[in-house]
Design a protein around this nucleic acid. Structure first.
Lengths: 193, 193
DNA sequence: CTGTTACCCAAACGATCGTTAGGTTTATCC
DNA sequence: GGATAAACCTAACGATCGTTTGGGTAACAG
């Protein structure tokens, strides 16, 4: 039961960071959102930065578990795993207010806070690795990594546009076209027909 | 000569907003960066928000002039215009510390500040319109708009990755593949050869 | 029951935030 | 050259920032 409060702080902080950004989220905001008094947060975390780091670490763990690890389960055909990964990513971000906290912080703090930068890089690397492993079953490893990086970029951009235009179709197209990269017989013809 | 100082304030603010974000840029920072004392900035702008709006308006005007308007010059073949647009966008962002201020603010402030949101939307719409107009010469208008939106998303994502991984290759690939969308004879074959 | 630790609150800290008020300098115009 | 206004500085404002201090309470160990 002890970890519940700590987790509640991380939960609140994570949501606020995602929706309002890091610098625009105050300890008072987090306090009001998690039920704990402002000063009490410092019982669990040395400061705001370390709290954010814990939040980012949680995102990394969660996405590894729920999104990227299933993609490496070799008992399932690669094309199915790719379809599952694409669909999970799509569902993960659609309707999630504030989009992707990793992408948001990547553009907000840039490399000003190395601990953030390192975690953001890890997150993107995980994502790219999962995609590259799957794509390498059909395309070469080198080309697969390029394609994986491009997919991650496109999805992140689609999430950005989703926030700006309230339109989730770019994200859906990114998912659909990703799946087709392992479709048999170079299914571009099937798609355009 | 009167507009010089005002422009200097906008210049400084724009650079700082792009590199450090909106909330993490203080009026004191802007003051120190433009040579004007903090209080003096309020002679030109009612507040920080209005200064930022002026900065965003300048970005819209600049990118219209230098990037998007040349794309609509019908005296040049569409495929050449697309190649020029892609190259200009690539050069515009590569090496530009902090990436794209519009994308950064889109993810940082989201829709919390409607005046920002409107300008960000305008910026993306301009970009998409330029691309869609060119792509519509070969593909249908509806499909061209989808493609344009996807390109914008991918480029923005590539800029994000460029900031995270210090790797500009995703952006270069996005440019290259964009150009090929108007290449004769569906130049995918040429590209993969 | 006593001592110790973890948990959490209440109150305040100095620093910095965006903003403002009032005065001084500089340019403009008749 | 004197009046008018724009440009700019100095100094401070209240509010909020992240953080700290000190104490109180509950839980658990001996």
């Amino acid at each position: 039961m002890k970890k519940t409060d700590r987790d509640a702080v991380i939960d609140a902080a994570l949501t606020l960071f995602r929706m309002n950004g890091y610098h625009n989220t105050s300890m008072a905001d987090i306090s009001a959102s998690c039920g704990l008094l402002k000063g009490s947060i410092y019982h669990y975390f040395p400061g705001k930065k370390e709290l954010a780091i814990a939040a980012l670490d949680r995102v990394i763990a969660e996405t590894r578990e729920k999104l990227f690890r299933p993609a490496l389960d070799s008992s399932v055909p690669a094309e199915v795993r790719l379809a599952n990964l694409a669909e999970r990513v799509e569902r993960y971000f659609i309707g999630r207010e504030g989009g992707c906290v990793m992408g948001n912080l990547a553009l907000e703090v840039g490399d000003a806070i190395p601990e953030f930068q390192a975690r953001i890089r890890t997150y993107f690397t995980d994502w790219k690795e999962a995609l590259a492993t799957l794509l390498a079953t059909k395309h070469g490893r080198a080309r697969a990594e390029e394609m994986a990086e491009d997919i991650v970029a496109r999805v992140q951009g689609a999430i950005m546009i989703m926030g700006v235009n309230k339109d989730e179709r770019p994200l859906r197209r990114a998912s659909r076209e990703t799946v087709q990269l392992l479709a048999p017989a170079d299914a571009a013809a099937t798609a355009s027909a």
